[in-house]
């Protein structure tokens, strides 16, 4: 791992004209975004709007059909990009390695890249697990955990990387409200502590408006609006207002 860029600095992200088609169907239709270093940028939108696909492009898991993504001005396709920047992603499903214990999962990045000695890795693993409320579960297997616990382990694994850019895919789904608040607080603390840049994909309006510096609304593969939480709330676009204000009304179903 190169030390050319400090692990304590957040990075900027630029997305330009991003287009992606799956089986001829447009999933992303010319997405342009700029995320500043150390910013918490939330991408909101209905299911199937292309949020997760966009996130996968930013971390290089999907190749765009057109457009470009760069981090700190450097294309993510460039040689040695992943070795230069510490980027972490918290998958919606957790994506823990089922054959490894919780502790091995959390310390995987550090042990595989031989960044720290084993004792130090064990200390970091214990610290990160305690941070997400899973103290002492190092020896458990992922199959022994609930969905919410898996998500928290995935967050601990991302934190252990001490990333410059962290991508969250629905970080509070499957979590109870208390743990959702803990995760939101952790996203904010990370920003204060290591000035990490965070891109959060979420349906959770409380999380989005609680943590975001800026919010982008995506609909059918297009960015409808980008702005501060107040600007987004004030945006008169009917699709945005519907998405932000819709609530389940039991009375409608009572005959």
């Amino acid at each position: 791992m190169s030390d050319t860029t400090s692990a304590r600095d957040g990075v900027s992200v630029q997305v330009r004209g991003l287009r992606k088609y799956f089986h001829g169907q447009a999933v992303l239709q010319g997405v342009d975004l700029d995320v500043s270093p150390g910013e918490i940028f939330v991408i909101m939108g209905p299911s199937g709007s292309g949020k997760t696909v966009l996130l996968k492009h930013i971390i290089g898991l999907e190749m765009p059909d057109a457009g470009a993504i760069s981090i700190d001005g450097q294309s993510i396709d460039g040689p040695g990009f992943m070795a230069k920047y510490r980027v972490a992603m918290v998958f919606q499903s957790g994506a823990l390695l089922n054959s490894l214990t919780v502790g091995e999962n959390v310390g995987l990045y550090l042990s595989e890249h031989r960044i720290k000695p084993e004792k130090e890795i064990a200390r970091i693993v214990a610290e990160k697990l305690e941070l997400v409320g899973l103290k002492g579960l190092e020896m458990r297997l992922p199959s022994e955990l609930s969905g919410g616990m898996k998500k928290r382990v995935a967050i601990a694994r991302a934190l252990a990387i001490e990333p410059q850019l962290i991508l969250y895919d629905e970080p509070t789904s499957e979590l109870d409200p208390l743990m959702a608040v803990t995760i939101a607080e952790e996203i904010l603390k990370l920003k204060q502590r290591i000035h990490v840049t965070s891109i959060v994909v979420s349906h959770d309006r409380d999380l989005a408006f609680g943590v975001a510096d800026r919010i982008a609304i995506i609909h059918e593969g297009k960015i409808l609006a980008v702005g501060s939480p107040e600007e987004i709330k004030a945006n008169p676009e009917p699709i945005i207002q519907q998405f932000l204000t819709v609530e389940f009304k039991k009375q409608k179903f009572i005959l």
């Binding site: 290089g60 972490a88 994506a95 089922n98 995987l108 990045y109």
Partner: peptide
Amino acid sequence: GSMRVYQEIDALRTMNI
């Protein structure tokens, strides 16, 4: 195959493994 389907391989790639 199961690691691929359940995104474990994607997770490895995001960790530059």
